[in-house]
């Protein structure tokens, strides 16, 4: 299967500290891929490299075979990557529906935008809150609104950075259901996540990052059974819950 996103020899150093170290990593088209790793593994730095917030010290990032490293963030979005940040990136003073209008208006006309806003609000369960200022939503609802904004771009690759941060178990489960529905619709999803319950709910394939390198790759069951992963994650031979 073709790699939709891949890195070759990707390296990022901050002064003398190497955070991403000659990383070779790829995401297959049409899959739901989770990127996990203990604190300091380099997940956030890899995220910022792919988004374009950082420039790599060496190596390349290719998306659909196209080199990304010299493109601006906006150009990467136009290439087909859509991103949901860890801290909900919404427009707090604007009504919920207008948040989505801003996301949709550059590719749809007024009438189509209205219909698509309704569809997306239904999808993330915020139809009743369309006219409420987005800042008045609960934390989970803000996360979902941002997911709706991210998928409104109809991306080839949806990139979610810790989408369940700060969510209750119920909200986490609902988020998982949404992500699975997107995958069923044919979207490739890459999730950076800490919550292993959530990873178990959604992941087809998992990459474990450690000291900026790929430490292990496989299905969630293979990763969960990997004692070396358990050690780096828990600092002992405990269970990756």
């Amino acid at each position: 299967m073709a790699k939709l996103l891949e890195t070759h020899g990707l390296t990022k150093r901050f002064g003398g500290v190497t955070v991403i170290d000659d990383l070779n990593f790829g995401v297959d088209e049409g899959t739901l891929h989770c990127l996990i790793g203990p604190n300091g593994a380099g997940k956030s730095t890899l995220f910022k490299l792919i988004v374009g917030r950082h420039s790599p010290t060496a190596g390349s990032i290719r998306f659909r075979g196209r080199e990304l490293t010299h493109l601006s963030t906006a150009a990467r979005i136009h290439a087909g990557i859509s991103i949901k940040m860890q801290v909900p990136g919404i427009f707090p003073a604007l009504p919920v529906a207008q948040n989505l209008t801003i996301a949709l208006q550059h590719r749809l006309g007024r009438a189509e935008t209205r219909r698509e806003v309704e569809r997306l609000l239904d999808f993330v369960g915020l139809a009743a809150d369309a006219t409420k200022p987005a800042g008045q939503l609960g934390h989970g609802q803000k996360q979902w609104l941002e997911i709706a904004m991210a998928i409104s771009l109809r991306p080839t690759l949806l990139f979610l950075d810790e989408p369940t941060a700060g969510l209750s178990p119920d909200e986490t489960f609902r988020t998982g259901e949404m992500v699975l529905a997107l995958k069923r619709d044919g979207m490739t999803v890459l999730v950076v996540e800490h919550d292993m319950t959530f990873v178990r709910q959604i992941a087809e394939s998992v990459t474990v990052l450690h000291f900026g390198r790929v430490f292990a790759e496989g299905t969630i069951d293979e990763i969960a059974a990997n004692t070396a992963v358990q050690e780096i994650y828990l600092g002992s031979t405990g269970h990756a819950h």
């Binding site: 963030t73 906006a74 979005i77 859509s82 991103i83 940040m85 427009f91 801003i102 941002e146 904004m149």
Partner: peptide, 9 residues
């Protein structure tokens, strides 16, 4: 409101 989000759109 949020220039980063606008850029990410």
């Amino acid at each position: 409101e949020n220039p980063e989000r606008v850029e990410l759109l």
